[in-house]
Simulated assay, not measured.
Amino acid sequence: MLGALAALSLAFGGLGYVIARRVTAPVGPRRFDLIVRGVDDSGETPVVILSRTAKTEVVGKFNLILESGAWVRLGPEVHDVGAGLVGRDVEQSDVPPSLVPGVRASWSGIYFRTPADAGLHARDVETITSAGPAPAWLIPPDEHESGDWAIHIHGLGSSRAGTLRGVQVAAAAGLTSLVVTYRNDGEGPRVGSGRSTLGALETDDVDSAVRYALEQGARRIILFGWSMGGAIALQLASRSGVREHLAGIVLESPILDWVETIKANCARAGLAKWVGALAVPWLNSKTLSRILGLAAPVRTEQFDRVSAEMRSSFPILLIHGTADTSAPFELARKFAQAHRSVELAAVDSDHTLTWNPEPGRWRARLSLWLSSLGTGPT
């Protein structure tokens, strides 16, 4: 009996280790799991033919990243071009020569590859973190500068380019934007095993970016956090030296509770939801997290924002997809109910894809909220 219990305990511990390793995995190569079935050049706009999947049949603006490295921006319409196939319009004049039938590709909600693609003028700068220099884009507002700065924080496994959808709105609202990187995100400094601490140490790196903004003359700070970047933004909001300058927070598909998020993703993968809790000791224990390859324990309890009290009440715009398969919408709803300062905008979309179905509506909602803060030139 004791042997059976020991074996069961060992098995559960091993499963928790595997899940924790998966969650904190270093940034890996992009998966090219689509094949271009054809390209129709007969009309005014080329149409890419793809297999119909849960992603490719969604109405909205998306990107097709080819194995060659080229990006192909796609329009919002979905054309039915045959059994099991969809057609998507190419929304750019410079069609890459590598866009041919048979090429492998990857689907992405990141629409702009560079600030220039988004019509923005950026300057490359560095913020100095304890992990080393972290590259960032410094982007001025469209017109007159002010003392209002936006710090844009991307999510786990994503890139800073994903935040450019929000930078466009910030620039139009008169905000100077700092689009940051942080340790082990694939662009910032690589440290140790390259694993993520899910915001535990990454928050320190973004804290350095906030201080850079203040040294450059920022008077008020607005944090824009995407996915794990949202968890980082909420951590920063409680820190002395940041909260005194904070005017508001924009959260796009934020992680509001790591434990519940891991459980939900286990359930989506076909496992029992409770299995996700087996990863928690590996993430929280100083000894086990070191075995896992982490530079510091995560301490998941500090990222439970749903049940925690906020020390200060900042205006928060929370944009979240009701069909989010990574960060449960139910957590966003509970968070908004628990905090009066939170304005929840629900969109029928998946994780960090609330911009893509209706960019104009997304921009208008964010612009209106920013104007309520009195941002821009005074």
Rank of each mutant, 00 (worst) to 15 (best):
T300M: 01
T300F: 02
T300C: 10
T300G: 02
E301F: 04
E301T: 08
Q302I: 08
Q302A: 11
Q302E: 12
F303N: 07
F303I: 08
F303Q: 09
F303L: 02
D304S: 06
D304Q: 08
R305S: 04
R305H: 15
R305F: 13
R305M: 14
V306G: 02
V306S: 10
V306K: 09
S307K: 05
S307G: 07
A308P: 06
A308M: 07
E309M: 01
E309D: 09
E309F: 01
M310T: 10
M310N: 06
M310C: 06
M310Q: 15
M310P: 10
R311S: 14
R311Q: 14
S312R: 15
S312A: 13
S313C: 02
F314T: 06
P315R: 09
I316T: 08
I316E: 04
I316V: 15
I316Y: 00
L317G: 04
L317M: 13
L318H: 05
L318T: 08
L318S: 04
L318Y: 07
I319R: 05
I319P: 00
I319F: 04
H320M: 07
H320V: 04
H320E: 03
H320Q: 13
H320G: 03
G321R: 07
G321D: 09
T322M: 03
T322W: 02
T322S: 08
A323N: 14
A323E: 15
A323W: 00
A323D: 15
A323Y: 02
A323M: 10
D324F: 04
D324Q: 05
T325A: 11
S326R: 13
S326I: 12
S326C: 01
S326H: 08
S326W: 03
A327K: 01
A327I: 06
A327E: 13
P328L: 14
P328T: 11
F329L: 12
F329C: 10
F329W: 14
E330V: 12
E330T: 14
E330N: 11
L331Q: 15
A332D: 11
A332K: 08
K334M: 13
K334T: 11
K334Q: 12
F335C: 06
F335E: 08
F335A: 09
F335D: 04
F335R: 13
A336W: 09
Q337S: 10
Q337P: 00
A338C: 00
A338P: 00
H339P: 05
H339Y: 06
R340A: 13
R340I: 04
R340Y: 03
R340S: 12
S341N: 15
S341C: 13
S341W: 01
S341G: 05
S341D: 14
V342F: 02
V342E: 10
E343S: 11
E343F: 00
E343D: 12
L344D: 03
L344H: 09
A345V: 15
A345E: 13
A346C: 05
A346D: 02
V347K: 04
V347D: 01
V347F: 02
V347Y: 08
D348K: 12
D348L: 08
